[in-house]
C-alpha cells in the first residue's frame, strides 16, 4: 500500500487535565472509507476535532499527504483540503441553504462554485428544491445533507463525517450512506466516518477501528470486524436485539 493520506501517530488530546485521547494510531488511505466506532464518550468526536486542530493534540503527530498538520491553525488545515461535517450538523440556521453552501466554498475562493454546487445538488436533489429555505427550518435529514454538502463545497480530498446518521429514520440513514458510498466509488473520495450505527458503518467501510476510552483496541477490515465477537457483543448484538424486539 502506498503512503496513507492521513496518518495519525500517538496522538494524545487533553481537555484541561483530562486525557480524552490516550495515544491514537490510525491511517486513512487514498480512496478508502474508514470508520471509527466506539461507545459514548470514547473520544470519537475529539479525534475528529483534533484532526482539524481544535483542540490541538498535546502529543503525537498528524500527517496529511505527508505534511505535518498537527500544529497548524484550523483554517489552514481546512485549506489543505480536509473537510468536516461536524457532530450535530452545525449548519447556520438563519441562513439559506444556498448561503450555507456558499460558506462551505469560502476556502476555494469561489473558483469553481457552479460546478461544486451542481455536484452537491446532484448528490442531494432535495437541497436544490430547498435552495432558498433557511437552514434552521430544514428537517433533520435535510440538515444532515446540507452539512455534508457544505463540507463537499470545499473540494476536500478527505471528508470527515461525525455521526451522519444521528437521529435519522432508517430510510434516510440508507440514503445518506448511499451518498457516502457514491462519493467514494465514483470520485474516489477518502472518507473517515464516525458512527454509532456500527452495523451499517462496518458494512460500508473498507476498514474500521474501535475506540475505547481514548485508545484504539481493535482494527481490521470492515466485514471482518463485523464478525468479531467482542464487537458484536459491545456494539452490534444489543442494538440488533432491540430493533428486533421493536419489530
Amino acid at each position: 500500500m502506498s503512503a496513507p493520506l492521513l496518518s495519525i501517530r500517538g496522538v494524545k488530546t487533553f481537555y484541561g487535565n483530562i486525557m480524552a485521547l490516550a495515544g491514537v494510531d490510525l491511517d486513512v488511505c487514498e480512496g478508502e472509507i474508514v470508520t471509527l466506532i466506539g461507545a459514548n464518550g470514547a473520544g470519537k468526536s475529539t479525534l475528529m476535532m483534533t484532526i482539524c486542530g481544535t483542540p490541538q493534540a498535546r502529543e503525537g503527530t498528524i500527517l496529511f499527504e505527508g505534511r505535518d498538520i498537527t500544529r497548524l491553525p484550523t483554517h489552514e488545515i481546512i485549506r489543505s483540503h480536509i473537510a468536516q461535517a461536524p457532530e450535530g450538523r452545525r449548519i447556520f440556521p438563519r441562513m439559506t441553504v444556498y448561503e450555507n453552501l456558499q460558506l462551505g466554498a469560502a476556502v476555494t475562493g469561489f473558483a469553481h462554485f457552479d460546478q461544486d454546487l451542481k455536484r452537491v445538488f446532484t448528490l442531494f436533489p432535495t437541497l436544490a428544491e430547498r435552495r432558498e429555505q433557511r437552514g434552521g427550518t430544514l428537517s433533520g435529514g435535510e440538515q444532515q445533507m446540507l452539512s455534508i454538502g457544505r463540507a463537499l463545497m470545499s473540494r476536500p480530498r478527505l471528508l470527515l463525517l461525525d455521526e451522519p446518521s444521528l437521529g435519522l429514520a432508517p430510510l434516510l440513514v440508507q440514503q445518506i450512506f448511499e451518498a457516502i458510498r457514491n462519493l467514494n466509488e465514483r470520485e474516489g473520495l477518502a472518507i473517515f466516518l464516525v458512527e454509532q450505527n456500527a452495523h451499517h458503518a462496518l458494512k460500508l467501510a473498507h476498514r474500521g477501528y474501535v475506540l475505547v476510552n481514548g485508545l484504539i483496541t481493535l482494527e481490521g477490515a470492515g466485514r471482518e470486524l463485523l464478525e468479531r465477537p467482542e464487537v458484536r457483543e459491545a456494539y452490534l448484538d444489543g442494538g440488533r436485539r432491540r430493533t428486533e424486539q421493536a419489530r
Binding site: 484550523t74 483554517h75 481546512i78 461536524p86 447556520f92
Partner: peptide
C-alpha cells in the same frame, strides 16, 4: 462579500465557521 458572510456565520456558529476553514 465573503467577509460579510463570514461575520454572519460567526454570529450563528463559531465552531462551524472554523470547521469550514474561516479564519475566525
Amino acid at each position: 462579500l465573503p467577509i460579510g458572510r463570514a461575520w454572519e456565520a460567526l454570529r450563528e456558529d463559531e465552531i462551524a465557521c472554523r470547521s469550514l476553514g474561516i479564519n475566525t
